[in-house]
């Protein structure tokens, strides 16, 4: 009895252990198949997740639409709507400033503005669930191609299409945590480090004039804006000033994005 108990304690039930081993092997095989088929498996997983996201969205609307939570719901909805509206106005106002500045620059070098062709697509996943700073959009291989830029409706770059499957695409956020992007703030070229949620940080020499609301543009994305300066922290003991950058719109309220073809 003792010997049997000792055997079970040290190694567990052999059958259960074998089951776990087989499951681990199978999962590694799935990963290998996905790699060898250039992401076909993940395409299916993402399509299923996007469908579930859309389905739960309508289910949530149906449940809250029954009226059980009407008072709380109406207040929350009004609050959210006002916040979204405010964000949208800020987005548009800043976009206007960015466009004006861009126009001045374009006139100065006598270049014509390039017309952007693209499509609008819905966001079909959560922004905060991805550990890799990615999100899903409801546009597939017929609509977008890898490397396409993803903009807010106010024309701020939020990401880049990295994977494309039949009905969904994966977008890597520009301001995802620890993602470094070369950007221009005023006349200074700086490395902007993403912090997630549409926020980023950069160090700028203290001599450079930076004000809240200044647009932050990225030469790698054709000089498009990736955010605005939200706050500037300057310490006399430090040669650099810390600039906090943000998107003028709350990314979690985004429902549609614009993809530049």
């Amino acid at each position: 009895m003792n010997a049997e108990f000792s055997h079970r304690s040290l190694h567990g039930h052999p059958r259960a252990r074998r089951r776990l081993f087989i499951a681990t092997t199978l999962i590694l095989v799935i990963l290998a198949v996905d790699f060898l088929t250039h992401g076909v498996v993940r395409g299916y997983v993402r399509s299923a997740a996007a469908s579930l996201w859309v389905f739960t969205g309508s289910a949530r609307s149906s449940i809250t639409g029954t009226g059980y939570f009407s008072t709380r719901r109406s207040l929350a909805a009004e609050n959210a709507a006002l916040r979204a509206q405010l964000s949208e106005y800020q987005d548009r106002a800043t976009a206007y400033a960015v466009v004006s500045e861009e126009n001045v620059a374009l006139r100065a070098v006598l270049q014509l503005a390039e017309k952007e062709k693209g499509i609008t697509a819905p966001i079909v996943s959560s922004f905060r669930a991805s550990p890799y700073g990615t999100f899903l959009i409801g546009a597939g291989v017929d609509d977008v191609s890898p490397g396409a830029l993803v903009l807010t409706l106010g024309r701020f770059v939020v990401g880049k299409v990295t994977d494309v499957s039949d009905s969904t695409s994966l977008v890597s956020a520009i301001l995802a945590p620890d993602v470094v992007t070369d950007a221009r703030i005023g006349t200074s070229l700086v490395a902007v480090t993403g912090r997630g949620g549409g926020n980023a940080r950069a160090s700028v020499p203290r001599g450079v004039s930076v004000r809240e609301g200044d647009p932050v543009t990225a030469p790698a994305f054709g000089g498009r804006a990736i955010g605005i300066v939200g706050r500037v922290e300057s310490d006399p003991a430090n040669a650099d000033q810390t600039v906090y950058i943000q998107l003028p719109i709350n990314v979690s309220t985004l429902k549609y994005i614009y993809i530049v073809q």
């Binding site: 252990r17 089951r19 499951a23 999962i27 990963l31 991805s130 550990p131 990615t134 994966l170």
Partner: peptide, 20 residues
Amino acid sequence: FRAWEGILLGVMIDLLWLPF
């Protein structure tokens, strides 16, 4: 538990969110 579903959950997160 000997939770094989834990590994499945891990691989699902990677397949879902990790770029290829």
